[in-house]
């Protein structure tokens, strides 16, 4: 149901004709991440001051970090300049506003999510049942289109207000009992 087109503004039209290039997938994902940020409201305390940078941190998936650089460098989101960082290690995370967690962190997902559990961080990942597992927004690439799920509980936990406008576009899920039951 959720379909995102790879638009001409994000990809090279000549390459588009030749089929998806190696980076196409990342570009689409980077654009999505950047756009989603626009529909998300962080609490004021998430920023040191008004106009402080909105920091994107990419964990585990280097090409995405590069694609993000391409898509969003120099741009602003709701008055905040965009800053893109590359996380070195799950244990060594820099405070950020959007944290993309790559496929490579499948084993360490739990720990990573726990580490940012109470932080005002919009976690985005592509792992299977990312949202169900406690991530705020899980992505899935289907036939060159991005579909997403939003874990509104996780969002509430992170004090993020996600615009209903995008909630209409994705799937809203709630945490399982287990999760509910967990501290």
């Amino acid at each position: 149901m959720l379909v995102l087109f790879a638009t001409a503004s994000l990809i090279d039209p000549s390459r588009a004709q030749l089929g998806p290039p190696p980076d196409f997938e990342h570009d689409v994902k980077a654009s999505f991440v950047y756009t989603v940020a626009k529909f998300v409201e962080w609490p004021d305390r998430a920023f040191e001051r008004p106009g402080a940078p909105l920091v994107f941190e990419v964990l585990g998936e280097d090409p995405l970090e590069e694609a993000l650089q391409r898509a969003a460098r120099g741009k602003t989101v709701n008055g905040h300049p965009v800053e893109i960082l590359k996380a070195g290690d799950a244990r060594d995370l820099t405070p950020c506003h959007v944290l993309y967690i790559g496929r490579s962190e499948a084993g360490r997902l739990r720990g990573v999510l726990d580490r940012v559990r109470d932080a005002t961080v919009l976690t985005v990942g592509e792992l299977e049942s990312f949202a169900e597992d406690g991530g705020v927004m899980g992505l899935r690439l289907e036939q060159n289109m991005i579909r997403f799920e939003v874990n509104v509980d996780a969002a509430a936990r992170a004090h993020l207000s996600i615009s209903s406008k995008i909630l209409k576009l994705g799937t809203v899920i709630r945490e399982r009992k287990r999760a509910r039951g967990a501290p």
Binding site: V3, L4, F5, K165
Partner: peptide, 14 residues
């Protein structure tokens, strides 16, 4: 206003 998301995510259907 109702169309900003649709436009942002190129969701023609929406």
């Amino acid at each position: 206003d109702n169309s900003t998301a649709a436009l942002s995510f190129k969701d023609r259907k929406a």
